[in-house]
Every structure is written in structure tokens, then in C-alpha cells.
């Protein structure tokens, strides 16, 4: 750094509004901070040393040597406990059901990605990304269920009021867990039956059963428990949080997505860049127009900059008509006026 010669800085870097002196900024990296503990990867889930891998206090080699299985290990990692045999059996039941769902989003995206000739892991990873707050919405479902159950447990609402409120506020949501998807398929209802048989239907399944019963009375179209509601409630009765459920089921589904990658590669062809056409008849954007020369640009280009709020709103309204601009999407952010003060 010693031979750095002082040169005049470019552009606006002497502007008095700058927050510090840009000409005399220090060079080089920040020295090691020896006043604090050196960096460590902090974890309460697991550690390992040269000879041992320990998850939640249990040596994992000893666990498997002692006959514990894959489902047991999921309990250990996410809940720091050895599950009852019945809990382990129930988790296995759910994992099997979660493995495959036909050519739904995770499998479809896995196959699309496979067409690019990628590692299987990229397709499987893409399938995990397909789990959101509509498809595979286990986090949204579980948090919804918790919200109304907590109302009852804290005595804020009686059970029937909480159930009615849950139905009223969520019946149109993709994560409701009750829909017309499983009217002919008994798989979702069987999850609850199995949980009861195994003695692991604790509070979520009985509550959800009451919600389903009431939903059938108040929703005019035929509805029933669906797979999201069945798996979600059962997983929570096994002690998994909504977020843990979301992750566990998404990863379980990705095995199926891996099979879709295999079949796509075995049966279909790869795609070349630029190969796929998008027919003109499917296009409804601006009419074809000549590209102006760079000399003509200043005559036709109109800036977005708005000087007044009225002008700003008018320009945004105009852009809302253009699909793909994003101007007509409004995402809710927290309203600080409705938040309790955080100290």
C-alpha cells in the first residue's frame, strides 16, 4: 500500500454532502479483532470431532447401532428427543405419502430443469423451491392452526367461535387444509385414522376434525380434509413446528422429483438454448415497432421521473397496464401504527 500515490478523485467524491472524507479513506482489510471470541459456527443441533458425530447429545453411530431409524433421526434433529415407537411409525407413514404427487409443481419444475442436462441435485433443489404458501403450504397451514388453537387455549374464544372464525377467515386460502381436492381419495382421512390408531392424535387432529365437520356444514360446495390439512395436523401432533414440517415434507417430495428427473432424462430429449418457440398468437404485448436510432432516442424517450405526487401516480397507473412490470402487485408490509411498541 506504501506506493499509493495521491490522485484527484473522480466524479462527485469531493461533494461536501458526502458523509466522510473519501480522499483519505483507509486502505487494506480490517485487522483481526482479538478482543472478542474467535469465529465459530454456533449450533445447538449437532457437533462433531475427529471420532464422533453428536446430534442433540446423542452419538449418531450409537443411535443406528442401537436400532434407531431414519424417522427417529428426524425427531432427534428437529426435536432433540427419542420418539415413541408409535410416533416413529406415524412419521414413516407420512413420509411415504409425501413422496409422490404426480406431475405437480415439484415434479414439473424438476423435469423442466432436467431438460437442460443438469445434475439431478439441481432438479431436486428446484423441486424444493416449488414449496410455497399455496402448494405445500405447511408453514402457512400450521401457523393458521396454531393461531386459532391458541385463542381457545388462552380462553380468548370458545372452541366453536374459534372454529367459525378460522373457516370464515381462511376458507378461500390455498393453505386452509380443507378443499374439494380429496372428495374421492380417502388418503387424507386415513392419516387421521392411523394417528388415532397409533395413539398420536393429540390436539391438532381432534381440532382439525371439528373444523372439517363445521366446514362441511357452512361451505355450500362439497369439501373435505385434504392432504395439506391431513399431513400438517398429524405432523404437528408429532411435535413438529410448522416450519419444520414445511422443510421435512419438501425434502421428502424431492426424492420423487429426483425420479422425475431420471425418467425425463431416460425418455425425453434435452433442450438447446433458443430452441423453444413462443408462438406469436400467444403474445398480447405492444404491437411490433421499429427500433429508433440512437440519434432519434432523445425525441421519443420519456423519463419516468415525476416532480409531483399527482404526476407520479398517473405514471404508475399507466405502467400498471403493462403485465410483467410488477406495478399492479401490492405486497402488504407491516403497518407500524398497528404494531405494539417493541422495547
Amino acid at each position: 500500500m506504501g506506493d499509493m500515490k495521491k490522485r484527484k478523485l473522480p466524479g462527485n467524491l469531493y461533494d461536501p454532502r458526502l458523509r466522510f472524507d473519501y480522499e483519505n479513506r483507509e486502505h487494506g482489510t480490517v485487522p483481526t479483532d482479538t478482543t472478542r471470541e474467535p469465529f465459530k459456527w454456533v449450533s445447538a443441533v449437532a457437533y462433531k470431532n475427529v471420532h464422533r458425530i453428536v446430534a442433540r447429545g446423542y452419538d449418531t453411530t450409537e443411535l443406528v447401532e442401537a436400532g434407531y431409524g431414519f424417522a427417529d433421526m428426524i425427531f432427534v434433529d428437529f426435536q432433540a428427543r427419542i420418539p415413541l415407537i408409535e410416533e416413529s411409525q406415524m412419521l414413516n407413514y407420512i413420509l411415504i405419502l409425501s413422496l409422490e404427487d404426480g406431475l405437480s409443481s415439484p415434479a414439473a419444475i424438476s423435469r423442466i430443469v432436467a431438460k437442460s442436462n443438469v445434475y439431478l441435485t439441481q432438479s431436486a433443489g428446484a423441486s424444493i423451491l416449488a414449496f410455497g404458501h399455496a402448494y405445500g403450504a405447511f408453514s402457512a397451514f400450521g401457523n393458521m392452526l396454531n393461531k386459532y388453537l391458541i385463542m381457545v387455549e388462552k380462553g380468548k374464544k370458545d372452541e366453536s367461535q374459534a372454529i367459525d372464525e378460522m373457516i370464515e377467515e381462511n376458507r378461500e386460502k390455498e393453505y386452509f387444509g380443507i378443499s374439494d381436492l380429496m372428495l374421492k381419495d380417502p388418503a387424507a382421512k386415513r392419516i387421521f385414522e392411523r394417528a388415532k390408531k397409533l395413539g398420536v392424535a393429540r390436539k391438532y387432529i381432534p381440532f382439525m376434525e371439528k373444523v372439517v365437520k363445521r366446514a362441511k356444514e357452512v361451505i355450500p360446495n362439497p369439501v373435505d380434509l385434504d392432504m395439506l390439512g391431513g399431513i400438517g395436523a398429524a405432523m404437528m401432533d408429532l411435535g413438529f413446528t410448522p416450519e419444520a414440517t414445511w422443510a421435512i415434507i419438501a425434502v421428502t417430495r424431492s426424492y420423487g422429483a429426483g425420479a422425475h428427473w431420471l425418467e425425463e432424462v431416460e425418455r425425453e430429449s434435452f433442450l438447446k438454448y433458443g430452441e423453444t418457440l413462443t408462438p406469436k398468437e400467444d403474445y398480447d404485448g405492444p404491437e411490433e415497432r421499429p427500433v429508433p436510432s440512437l440519434e432519434e432516442r432523445s425525441k421519443i424517450a420519456k423519463p419516468f421521473k415525476a416532480e409531483t405526487l399527482e404526476e407520479w401516480m398517473r405514471k404508475r397507473e399507466e405502467l400498471k397496464k403493462l403485465y410483467g412490470s410488477g406495478h399492479s402487485i401490492v405486497e402488504e408490509i407491516e403497518d407500524p401504527r398497528k404494531l405494539k411498541e417493541k422495547k
Binding site: 449450533s43 457437533y47 475427529v50 442401537a66 432433540a80
Partner: peptide, 14 residues
């Protein structure tokens, strides 16, 4: 391995 700082349950018999 020295980067790990474990703060979970104490080691316990299986």
C-alpha cells in the same frame, strides 16, 4: 472442526 461451537444438550447415552 475447530470452528464448531456446540451449545446443545450434553452428551448422553443412547
Amino acid at each position: 472442526l475447530s470452528m464448531i461451537k456446540y451449545v446443545g444438550p450434553e452428551d448422553r447415552p443412547v
